[in-house]
Nucleic acid binder design. Structure first.
Lengths: 243, 243
DNA sequence: CGGAGCCTTGATTATCGTCAATAGCGGTGG
DNA sequence: CCACCGCTATTGACGATAATCAAGGCTCCG
């Protein structure tokens, strides 16, 4: 299946970006850090990069693999189980740990969904660097701001969209970010391999795992996607976009 | 239109018991900017500080009054109405405009809910300043990080809590931030005057305005709050916390 | 081969959205 | 001054969406 040979789709996309003012480069790549020989770390499936409450030592840029960040909310209520939610999935070139800058402690857990490699950027080094290099400072501020926008978009999605739209939007977003990380210019991968469980997706989207499963099945019946466990093929992007 | 009372005045007076939660200080005060004679601007009810799509010129720190930020999402679907949501309410000492740093354009509208004053900090001045003063840089990063955490908490609330808990959490959060802005140490105001409509609250919480009204009424029947239009008296904090 | 975790699907229930009617408050203008 | 209007809030009835409960199949791995 060739994606985005449909000129209409391309136009729609352009109109989108125009209307919103240049779709922000969320998950901005921290390019200026590329020149600096930061150490790396390899992780296995299930490894935690950091956990909530730990002191913030470093920021991490994903080089390969995929991570989820999980927030735990003390649940105003003490006796019942604390609320917990996946707040993001993170692909290569995206930076993790930014939520910990405000308190000096991580506010969430970061867990590897598959084997991967991250670059470790100690915060103690980062801030002086940013004071020296204006471009680097600007870029750090930009990726933090992008995180704010990303989280706000998630909130908006959770607050306003019905289940099917959420699942469709998730698939589109994930596939686009996968493309971005693959650096294949202007192309849309039609075939995705989701590294997370239905429960993870549901937690992220504010849905139960059964609902996610049902919506995926429904999208398949409608011919929007091909579905085989965690393999998803995007057949008709337009159907997904129109929820 | 409004009760002839001055909301800020009512909110300023009346304070009660202590025991502040272990919540990190979100909405960090940008203290280091206090020393600098930034210009201010007064706004009337309904005035927009900025609108989505406008180029980012400045950040704004609320000095008095209350603002809401409204995000508009192009709604994957073109023909139907775009999704829109209140993404935050902003009280004195909180900073607005941070979401625009990543793209150089504002991602949301900021609208005054009552007459107020803001301090205007041009971004062109702010970045060099932060390069010079480490403490200021650290503080800017901290308030941006706090915004990330705040947005993630909102997402978590929208994704995991039922309506009644959301409304209760909103009341608690608002009252605590009101206390923080009033700088009465360790005290809790029992009497709030909400400057926003039920529709605003609903939009923020991902609920319809009728649901907000119903939940407030229910909390009143349970003896958790006293309710008279936009005046809310917190009677039993424990009930709210255990939602 | 057996077990554990993951996924799908169905039946039932609860929550919340939608539609509608009413009331209050404040401002406006006759 | 009072009547009217617009906006906001409350409440009820009804229906739709998604959660919950339950069962069965699948794959992977020991």
């Amino acid at each position: 299946m060739e994606p985005s040979l449909d000129p209409a789709a391309v136009n729609r996309r352009a109109a989108h970006d125009g209307a919103r003012g240049a779709m922000p480069t969320l998950h901005v790549r921290f390019t200026d850090a590329d020149a600096i020989p930061f150490p790396t770390r390899t992780v296995e499936r299930g490894d935690a990069l950091y956990c909530a409450g730990e002191p913030l030592r470093s920021l991490y840029t994903v080089q390969s693999g995929c991570f989820k960040t999980v927030a735990t909310y003390p649940s105003a209520d003490d006796d019942s189980a604390p609320h917990t939610q996946v707040t993001g999935f993170h692909l290569p070139n995206e930076t993790l740990g930014l939520d910990g800058v405000c308190t000096g402690r991580h506010e969430s857990d970061a867990v590897a969904l598959e084997p991967g490699v991250v670059r470790i950027m100690p915060v103690g080094i980062l801030e002086p660097l940013c004071r020296e290099y204006a471009a680097m400072q600007h870029e750090l501020l930009a990726i933090m701001s992008a995180e704010i926008v990303r989280a706000s978009r998630l909130a908006l999605m959770l607050g306003t969209m019905p289940a099917r739209e959420r699942v469709a939007a998730f698939l589109l977003d994930f596939s686009e970010r996968l493309d971005a990380s693959a650096a294949s210019p202007g192309e849309h991968a039609a075939e995705l391999l989701l590294p997370m469980t239905r429960a993870d997706i549901g937690s992220y989207l504010g849905l139960e795992l059964e609902t996610v499963s049902r919506m995926l099945s429904k999208l398949q019946r409608q011919g929007a996607i091909g579905l085989n466990g965690r393999q998803v093929r995007i057949v008709d992007r337009a159907i997904l976009e129109h929820s």
